[in-house]
Every structure is written in C-alpha cells, then in structure tokens.
Design a protein around this nucleic acid. Structure first.
Lengths: 338, 338
DNA sequence: TTGTAAGCGTTATCAT
DNA sequence: ATGATAACGCTTACAA
C-alpha cells in the first residue's frame, strides 16, 4: 500500500481511504482517485487481511467443526456451507472432532486462536462435553447445525430439523400403503437420531400397534450397518414388511443387502431413508426418503453466525432455535404391502 | 500480551521472548520466566496469529481447492488432509471450484489474500485454465494432488498415482480369472481418468484381443452413471463378462443396477472399481478395487507444500512429481468366468 | 480533499 | 537478563 501511495504520489492514508471507499464517507477528487486506482492495479496490490484484522475488522473466516466429512450427508452440508459462505465473502476453515481426543485439536486449530469470526458446529455434539463447554466461552459466535434437541439447556443458537415430523411422515406413508410390520433401524450413539427413534415408538404406540420385539435395531451408520440390521430383522420370527432407516446411508445398505439376497425392493420390502443425500436419487430402486432442507438450513445458520439476524449476541437473551420442516420424497423403494 | 507484561511486572518484550523461547536464544532468569508464565496462564493469554503473520510468520493455514467434496473419494482426501494438517499445527481453508464460475471465488477466498501459507489442489484441474494460470503466479507454494499427467508442462509439484499400473493390475486379475470380454466405464471429462482409459486400451491391444466395439462407456461419475453404463453394455450383441470402472462410485452403481436386474455379481458379472473408498468394503458383494494410498499421498503433498522436502521453491528447478503405486484389493465382486 | 500520526499485537534489534 | 523502540500493513481520528 505504501508502494501504491509512492507510485501515485499521494499519502498512504489517502490510498487506504480511496481503495476501501465506504458508502457514506468523504469523497476524494476524481483525479487522485484515478491515479491511485491505476497505481494499485499496475502494482497488483492486494490488501493484507491480517493487517486489517488487527484493527478488529472481520477475518472473513468461518470455522466449521464437523464430525465426519466422509459421511455423505455431512459432505453435502459442508459443500452447502462453503457455497453459502463464499457468496458472502467468507472462507471456511475446517475443524475436526472425530474422536474425543481430537476435540482439542479442532479447537486449537480453528478457534483457540480466534482467527475465525464465528464457528459453526455441523452435527450433533452433545456427547462431546468438553467441546461444548469450551465453545460456550468462545470469544466468537457459535451456531449449531443439526445439534439435537437440548431440553434443559441451550448452549448456542441452533438450526435444526423436526426429525419427529419426518419420521411421522415416513410412517404415515407406509401405513397408508398397508404396512403394519414396520421396523426401525438407527444408530445408538447419535443423539439427533434418538429423536427419530422416539418418534417411531410414539407413532407405533399411538396406533395401538406397539413396537414388536426386535423391531428397533441399533447399528453403525454405514452401508454395512444397514446390511447387518437387515440380516437381524430377517431372522425375526415375524420379519417386517417395511423398514424406516434413520439415515439414507443405512437405507442404502439395507436395500443393497436385500437385493443381494434376492429380496425384491419394494415388492417384498419397502424401505424409507432420511436425509435425501444425492446418492438416494440414483440408486435402483431410487430411495423414498425424508428430504433435509440443507441449503436453507445452512444459510440460516450462516446468517445467525455472522450476525445478520435480529438475535443480539451481546444481550443475554435465550439463543434462538430455528426448526425446519423436512418433507417426504416418495420414490421407488416403497410400495403397497403385498 | 501487554496485560501479561503488566501483571508480571516486566516489559512486554520480555514476555514475548519468554513465551516463544527459541531453541538457541538467550535464556531468561528462572524467576522471571515463572512469573510471566503464571501471569499468562491466569490471564488466559492466547497469541494473536495475525499479528505474528504481520512479521512474516506463517499463518498455519493451508488452502485446499477441491472440485466436489460430495464425491466420496475427495471427501476422504479432504479428511486425510485435515488430519495430516492438524498433526502439523495447520488448519485447512476450503476453496471450491465446482463450476468454472467458482474458480474466481475459490481464489478470492483461499489465496488471493495470501492468507494461506500454501495451496493444495485436490483433483484434476487441467480443464480449469484460468485457475491454473492464476495459481502459477500465486505468491505461495502450490501443490497438486491427483492432478493428471501433464506431458508438456508441469506447473506445480504434483503427487499422483500410477493409474495405468492400477488398471493393468485390475485387468491382469480379470484375465487370470478367465475373462476375455472386459468393458471399461469411465467419465469423459476427468483427465486423470483418461490415463485409466488409455491403460485399458493398451492392455487389451497388447493382448491381441483389441477393444470390442462399444466396450468403452463414458458416463457421469455417479451411481446413476454406473447404472446407465451397465444398461448400455447389456444391450450390446455380446455383453461383457467383466467391467473395469474408473472409480468405485461407478462400480457401485454398476453392481447396484446389476443386482436390481437380478444379474448375479460376481457369478455372472465381475466388477472392479478404482479408489477403494470406504464404501467399497461395505457393499454386498464387497468391491474388488484398486486401492489408492490416500494418506501417504496427502502426507507427501503437505510435506512439499510446507517446504519439508529437499525441493527448493525459490530455485528454478523442475517441480517434482511424486508417483505412488496403487495396489489391487481383491474382494467379492470378481470371480472366475463361468 | 489530503496528509500526519497514532495505534492494532507481535517480533526483532538495539541498548542497557 | 531485560527494557525501549522500531517495524509489519493497515485503519482511522485529527490536522491542515
């Protein structure tokens, strides 16, 4: 910048003023401006963001803490986050909190140095007590995306989805198709997903049917987990005619295993997923699933994080909790009971 | 830092010296050191990385430009990158270059402001002429991972894999199983993948068999693309008994479609993938595929990027090209021809 | 309208 | 062994 000033024959502060001309600021003479702008262009001037940040300017860096980018759902979420951020001129710094031991790292890298203007938690971290505790006293805004419902206590603003409504939609769809023996497959450890299981239990109970023994399976959230669950369910004295999976990944595993065993999906077995990941539309049969409005949710999260909403971080108000509604996408993995 | 100095009753420069005590520096009195360290701890002092960067210190930020995190292979690569970086105290800033329009953004966010110490390109970007051109004159080191073979010109240090050897291993395996009618399914636009196709053609030609008409299919690199390719291949007058796919995603799509059509894999159709993504081991049947040594490759890339290798960025030497060897993992999707 | 000068938090170079 | 003091590149009063 000093170079630009020298080249243009003006003072360095003039350059600063001209180059980031603020809306309502004092104008500069056209002639000087042109000279400065040309000099800047010729010298290939690039502002040095750190020097700006030193004055309290935003770093335009957003920290994202994700459990597992390898999970297609979270990959899509991060993709959406990156896009949303770049629209607003922000960049995304990737944190990582796969194991508890990594928590510290995620913090050290992303936030400890408070180089980020805000932090976005992607996924459910209620299990990571230390992470959440540290984040509570983070010097920057923290927003949680898909953080499970916290009944007693809400540490940060949260954007989430009404999982229960999604499960209800799935079950309503299946019962409308005539299914009565409907099983549930989910992961034991993921808290958000517990909501889904609860919704399943409630629905079946309300119907007066109740949950048949062995109809709730807990497996790892992988393709293989889905296959495992299917094997267990088929071993039951009275196997289900339909399965609701807590995630698409599980549902795809179930379908894959079913096809490999020559079980016809959907004729002999209906399967509903949850998340509507990109993969879900491409499988054969394509997956009936609960669509997760990833983009709007991420956009809302970013908006809160960078302070584009009413909610005032400074004031001691209760952090907002924005709940989106998922909707069922009916494709080819469900059919009337036969 | 000033606060710490005040609290410890010493000058601020003393604090600086003590807190980042360098190996061969002048020692400080034990007593002062303790006082300073305690003060720092009590005040919860955290160094401000930007102020450091102002003095030429590394920002400990690594820019990653990825085409599509949603692709499981790249998701795993980014995961490995994040882990490798955090081991070394670096954080990863995510760029994004999905569409050509995004190129500019990827740069703006990740590097334009030279906030990153280095940039890692993940995937093949030879198509992105502007991106590559811009990157050539980036003020920081650029390393390309999985950037396809550049015959005439090597813009940056590159870490890649010997795709041809991988394809040869796959074909050798299949021919050993008695297969003669082996098709190839790949994407048209991805350059690295062209190497794979060439290797396929060469292998078949060398065998004196030649490539049967219609045995090379170009489809989008998705599950659905795989299904499409399978449909086309089955329509051929003499359909293949084995298929080599350029990626696991395609291979999985092929298997999924085959099962849905009651084609037995591997009894009636053998399928080999490429990449060995996590999904590949979990499908039924599990996928025979060419394993990509992601971790070592990423580690090497990072090492070059942060200047931990012999290669001197300043000197005008030819950028290094490190080529890893993939190896075939035989699982359940291949069997003797019947 | 433009220039001068005082920081921002840190490191580095002097003296002391 | 420690303390002033000058950078680093930029923003921002305040002066001219």
């Amino acid at each position: 910048m000093t170079d630009v000033a020298a080249a243009a024959g003006v003072s360095q502060s003039t350059v600063s003023r001209i180059l980031n001309r603020k809306p309502g600021a004092i104008p500069a003479s056209r002639e000087t401006r042109e000279r400065v702008e040309r000099a800047a262009r010729e010298l290939g001037y690039r502002p040095h963001p750190f020097a700006r940040a030193l004055h309290g300017a935003p770093t335009m860096l957003l920290g994202a803490v994700v459990r597992d980018i390898t999970d297609p759902f979270f990959a899509e979420a991060i993709e959406a986050l990156t896009i949303e951020c770049s629209k607003r001129g922000y960049s995304v710094v990737l944190g990582h909190a796969r194991t508890t031991a990594d928590e510290a790292l995620a913090l050290a890298g992303v936030l400890e140095a408070r180089q980020c203007d805000a932090i976005v938690l992607v996924g459910d971290f209620r299990g990571e007590r230390r992470l959440v505790a540290d984040l509570r006293q983070a010097p920057v805004p923290v927003v949680a995306l898909w953080h499970g419902s916290e009944r007693h206590d809400r540490p940060f603003p949260t954007v989430t989805v009404d999982s229960r409504a999604g499960i209800r939609a799935a079950l309503t769809h299946l019962t409308a198709l005539g299914h009565e023996r409907i099983a549930y497959v989910g992961g034991a450890l993921r808290y958000v997903i517990l909501d889904r299981e609860e919704a399943y239990r409630e629905f079946l109970s309300a119907d007066g049917v109740g949950v048949p023994a062995g109809y709730v399976r807990h497996v790892p959230n992988t393709i293989r987990g889905g296959a495992l669950a299917l094997a267990e369910l088929r071993d039951l004295p009275s196997p289900p005619t339909a399965i609701v999976a807590a995630t698409d990944v599980l549902a795809i595993g179930i379908i894959n295993a079913a096809l490999a065993q020559r079980i016809d999906v959907p004729a002999d077995l209906s399967v509903v997923g949850f998340d509507d990941i990109a993969l879900a539309a491409g499988t054969i049969p394509s997956l009936t699933t609960v669509h997760m409005p990833i983009e709007p949710m991420v956009a809302e999260g970013v908006r809160i994080a960078i302070g584009e909403t009413d909610w005032d971080w400074a004031a001691g108000n209760d952090p907002p909790r924005v709940v989106f509604d998922p909707n069922l996408i009916v494709r080819d993995s469900t059919a009337p009971r036969r």
